[in-house]
Nucleic acid binder design. Structure first.
Length: 191
DNA sequence: TCTAGGATCGGCT
DNA sequence: GCCGATCCTAGAT
C-alpha cells in the first residue's frame, strides 16, 4: 500500500506518478483492482477549474481541504460520481481526479456492475465509469486511503511507466475555467 | 426558497 | 457528432 508520503508531494508529481499504479477497492462483493491510465491535477484555490477555487469552503468540498491521502468524491450531472485523491497536505485544497484505468483483478465483478454488454475497453475509461466499476459513491467521500483497514487504497506492483508512454494535455470538460482549461494537467498512460 | 448549471455517459443519427 | 438524462450544489433572492 502506498504511504501518505506518496500523496504529500506537489500535485503534478503525484498525478504523473499515479499512472501505472494499481487502485484497489474491497467490498462485500469482492476485490477489484484497476491499473490507472488517466488522471488530472487540480491545483487548489488559484486554479479556476478546481472546486476549491477562491478558497471555496462548502460541505461538498470539505474533504478536499483535508489531509493528503484521503478521497474526495462528488456527484456530477446528477448521476455520475468522480473520485479524487487529496494531495500535498491539509488546507492545500489540491487533488488528483482519477479519470480512467484498466481492470486487472475482479473483472467479472466490474462487468456485473458496468453491464454485461460493455466492451472490455470501455469498462473503466471515464471518471464516472471508474466509480461505477469500483462501486464508489459519496459514502466514500473523506475515506482515508492510507489506513490499516482502508477499503480503497493504492499499490505499486512494480510496473514502470516510461516517459515516452506518458501524454500530457489540457483537462477535459473545464472550458468554463478560461485560460486554465488549457493548462497541461491531464496525464495519460499508453503502454 | 429559487434557479442555473455541471471535472459525464450512452444512445441515436 | 449531437443530445437528453437527472439532481445536487452553490449562489442569488
Amino acid at each position: 500500500m502506498l504511504s501518505r508520503r506518496f500523496y504529500q508531494r506537489p500535485t503534478v508529481d503525484v498525478a504523473r506518478d499515479l499512472l501505472g499504479k494499481v487502485l484497489v477497492r474491497t467490498s462485500r462483493g469482492g476485490l477489484v483492482a484497476v491499473r490507472l491510465t488517466e488522471v488530472e491535477a487540480y491545483l487548489g484555490p488559484d486554479d479556476p477549474a478546481c472546486h476549491t477555487f477562491g478558497g471555496l469552503r462548502t460541505p461538498r468540498v470539505d474533504s478536499m481541504w483535508g489531509a493528503a491521502g484521503h478521497a474526495y468524491v462528488y456527484l456530477v450531472y446528477g448521476m455520475h460520481h468522480c473520485l479524487n485523491l487529496v494531495t500535498v497536505g491539509r488546507e492545500s485544497g489540491e487533488a488528483v481526479l482519477l479519470r480512467g484505468g484498466v481492470p486487472i483483478v475482479g473483472t467479472p465483478l466490474v462487468r456485473a456492475r458496468r453491464g454485461v454488454s460493455v466492451a472490455d475497453s470501455s469498462l473503466c475509461d471515464g471518471p464516472g465509469k471508474l466509480c461505477q466499476a469500483l462501486a464508489v459513491t459519496r459514502d466514500d467521500d473523506g475515506h482515508d486511503l492510507c489506513g490499516r483497514r482502508s477499503r480503497i487504497y493504492l499499490v505499486d506492483d512494480g510496473v514502470e511507466v516510461l516517459e515516452a508512454d506518458v501524454r500530457r494535455g489540457p483537462r477535459i470538460g473545464v472550458d468554463y475555467a478560461g485560460e486554465a482549461a488549457r493548462w497541461p494537467l491531464r496525464f495519460r498512460y499508453r503502454a
